[in-house]
Design a protein around this nucleic acid. Structure first.
Length: 137
DNA sequence: GCCAACGTTGGC
DNA sequence: GCCAACGTTGGC
């Protein structure tokens, strides 16, 4: 079991839209970055992830589960790009903002802080537990 | 809206 | 294979 973080601009694809997809889930398409793609290739069905809203909100808002392994991204003919499918599991009781993450010394090494531009990133088991707790779960 | 950080592209 | 130019992302 591995943990991940998926970043999205709410104006492009929001948590609410993800929830509306229900158990069917949805492709995490549109990733055009090799690092991010490589992480998705490593994902297995059942892996869990945080859903993060960038830009306006800058907060982890929910938990998702990988429901399909990496496959070709349907939004492009370029076969370099692949994506997984994810489905919403549950919302956090309260969003965990970037400020909260930065304020917690235990989270100082999170990729979210160190490489803010990476849109799909790994989360350690420790970070997973801490952010969950901060989110009230 | 600006700017820093970073990844990608293309010329050499 | 290097590096300058350029485009994109995301925090502020």
């Amino acid at each position: 079991m591995a943990y991940w973080l998926f970043k999205s601009e709410p104006s492009t694809w929001s948590w609410d839209q993800q929830v509306a997809k229900g158990q069917a889930g949805e492709e995490w398409d549109g990733v055009r970055n090799y690092q991010a793609r490589n992480f998705m290739r490593k994902m297995a069905v059942g892996d869990l992830g945080f859903f993060y809203h960038s830009q306006t909100e800058k907060a982890v808002v929910g938990i998702v589960e990988v429901c399909a392994e990496a496959h070709p991204d349907s939004t492009t003919d370029d076969d370099r790009w692949e994506c997984v499918d994810i489905k919403a599991v549950e919302p956090l009781q309260q969003p965990v903002t970037l400020d909260m993450v930065k304020a917690d010394p235990r989270l100082a090494d999170m990729v979210l802080v160190k490489n803010s531009r990476l849109s799909v990133q790994p989360v350690t088991e420790n970070e997973w537990k801490i952010v969950r707790e901060l989110g009230g779960l």
